[in-house]
Design a protein around this nucleic acid. Sequence first.
RNA 1: GCGGACGUGGCGAAAUCGGUAGACGCUGGGGUCUUAAACACCCUUUCCUUUGGAGUACGGGUUCAAGUCCCGUCGUCCGCACCA
Length: 885
Amino acid sequence: MTYDPAVTEARWQAAWDTAGVFTAKRDARPKYYVLEMFPYPSGRIHMGHVRNYTMGDVIARYKASCGFSVLHPMGWDAFGMPAENAAIERGGHPKDWTYSNIADMRAQMKPLGLSIDWSREFATCDPEYYGQQQAMFLDMLAAGLVYRKAAVVNWDPVDMTVLANEQVIDGRGWRSGALVERRELTQWFFRISEYSGELLAALDGLTDWPEKVRVMQANWIGKSRGLQFAFSTVDAPEGFDRLEVYTTRPDTLLGASFAAISADHPLAKHLERHDPAVAAFVAECRRGGTSAEAIETAEKMGYDTGIRVRHPFDAAVELPVYVANFVLMDYGTGAIFGCPAHDQRDFEFATKYALPIPPVFVAEGGEEAALTEAYVPMKSDRVRYLRSFAGLPVQTGDEAVTSAITFCEEKGVGRGVTNYRLRDWGLSRQRYWGCPIPVVHCPTCGVVPEAKANLPVRLPDDVTFDKPGNPLDRHPTWRDVACPKCGGAARRETDTMDTFVDSSWYYARFTAPHALTPTVAEDAAYWMNVDQYIGGVEHAILHLLYSRFFARAMHKTGHLPAKAIEPFNALFTQGMVTHEFYDRSVNLTAPGEATEPMRYEHFLPENVVTFTVGDERFALLKKEVRDAGVDESNPGALQSFMIEGRNRRVRIGPSIKMSKSKKNVVDPDSIIARYGADTARWFVMSDSPAERDVEWTASGAEAASKHLARVWRLADEIAQSVAPATDDDAVLARATAKAIAEVTAGIEGFAFNKAVAKLYEFTNTLMRSGAGGDAKRRAMVVMAQLLSPIVPHLAEDVWGMLGGAGLVTQAAWPLADPALLVEDSVTLPIQINGKRRAEITVPKDMPAAEVEKRVLADDAVIKALAGLAPKKLIVVPGRIVNVVI
RNA sequence: GCGGACGUGGCGAAAUCGGUAGACGCUGGGGUCUUAAACACCCUUUCCUUUGGAGUACGGGUUCAAGUCCCGUCGUCCGCACCA
């Protein structure tokens, strides 16, 4: 008998299935909902998935053992562009591609032995799912949470589609290479900005979320407090006698030297129509790229409109109004005043256009002088005002801003305004493979919601991707419908929803996945919220913010209870699985040797032999090494072989995220086939803390596998042991209690690497223990229980060998006997002047005075004291003793 | 530029309250078993000028005691970024 995961893992999975142990049930037990971010069905699972789902599985299995009714579901985030791209490139239908990928990935996931309730599985492209999404959309439309407005988008004129910012590379469409145009289209928006303040404030309550994520969301929402006021204009066109601006620095208002408006500002648009020079400048502004570098290097440009505005505190002062390329229409009012003395960007602009630079204040002790750059005081700096609002005390920082707002309000100049950076969420996509937006455009009735009875608005199957653009646009029988209101000829909305909508409520759908309504009140009330959500930090902003908004919108429309407006009680962001990569871009040759380009396409982790020469590591193809009969374990032989075959050498690069393009992907399939799922699970939980990246190494996988085999053999041996009881039985019982306490703490704290380390330690202890057979069997039973969340198949094997009743998966989590956790005696280190010099073992409860006596009698202490009395003697009971000489 | 996190052996890392720095694992070295190997098991692996000394990026400080707290410097990583 040996450890044979290939056989036993399948058997235990079948046993769990038969017993239906993972089916989530509403009952009297407290519930626990653990969810990992659901995958996009790309076709293959990767090690990142394995790590993500294993973490969730450890939590789910642990909580189940602790007596919770656990919900641990799985589904597919199945809409999106890759399916359409596949259809365009290879023919076929996005639907077929997607469902076949789902089948492949499910087949790869099942052997991992995850405790998932597969009866709740769904894909977001199932009409049963997106039909309910459409129903909610209609409710949200009725509630005013969705609206239509014109918005500027990136338009690819060749592919005839809207592109996301990430799909625009150097101003060109990523696929067509065509120059992208900025087009104004009427699109649908969620009114998320209405919730800016609430979404920001509620972050404080998310104490079980990573601080990092909360900070990122707060920055994204971007709250600022400032003054909004109107300049009166001079020589402006009719209807533009006022110009509203927003500023967070009203305290520098007396340093104003110009005003600037966005190229998209209504005034600029008006001028554009009448003045070709403005039109040319505005067109130039709109062409600018949106990438970070483009913005970084873009020169500040302005066009003097000839219009003037009067300073609100001195009508005699007139400031020029520029159209400027750096002013954004969708922040504030799309217009600013410039204070070059105290804002670097304004300073550059003023310098370029020879505008005055009047300072408002100088550093305390400093004199007014020509500035070479804007003076922006630090928080700690003290300043001297040169111009200040009459009667206002001199202040700096936030105080100055606040009192300047109050001052201006009292003088009737504008009002204090809180602004957010967060903009409404545009959800329209001119794409086929997404959830259809359930509205109809009627020439007489306008925009008409589809009748709920007609839901789901199904995607038509008979579409082709041979022409650019959205196939829904040229599908007459789908597109042309009767108006739900008047019955006249109308057109269906052909835009589909952003896939982020799909993922903004799937967690709620899992609570009643097959219901004929989006959610079911009792189920949502029982299962919500998600107690533990686990996923990648790359979703820290968009997905998580949209979900938080959506839960609120669902509550407002009656689809979620009030307690679920923050749907994720705890969030954990896990690190990636990385792997070294085989750097074929560098051709390493001995001096004087000719180089040839390398053409090896098979440098995948499972195909190579690695070895080290000096500080550098190299990889060779396993097949070639074997064919040549070279000793794989001999670095020297490998090195000679490498030098002979000058094209075979590949330098090993640093460990980076696994990706196809780097050819450093370790396929979970091949690992499971070779070692079994438990080895893969054990490995991804060990070594690195869960929130950090973990490096996949062949030696680490090998070691994991060996350890599990060792545990199996140990269980086998202990099961048959007839050794009589010994004095070590009590010692082992204590070690067992300690292992329970520490592994439990590790799992509870998401410190799986520590739990794994404790299990290694406990195994070593048990192997070396001189305890009797019965004592060892008791310890080994606990071992099986402690192992079961992480390596459940092996745990069942061990449980079975020791005669455990039923399945260890269904056994209660072991409790550590508190009495056994307390040691009778403690070993205290003795420090002399803070350095450890000796130790002393004393009974646990020995009084400090008695400990002192013993310490002073210690040889090392006597020697160090050399007959003198210690200056100070510090005894920290149960911890340490420090003798100060 | 703004915001955040982090810096510990050859490597991944532990050290929960300020209290024995390096648990556990990998790698390397040595050994037992074997004709030999594989497997397994055992020992060893922070550094040095080793009766001892130094050491948690660097420089200071607080303390009986600092990886942990405070001040400063350097470095790495991440997020946002023409946001008025």
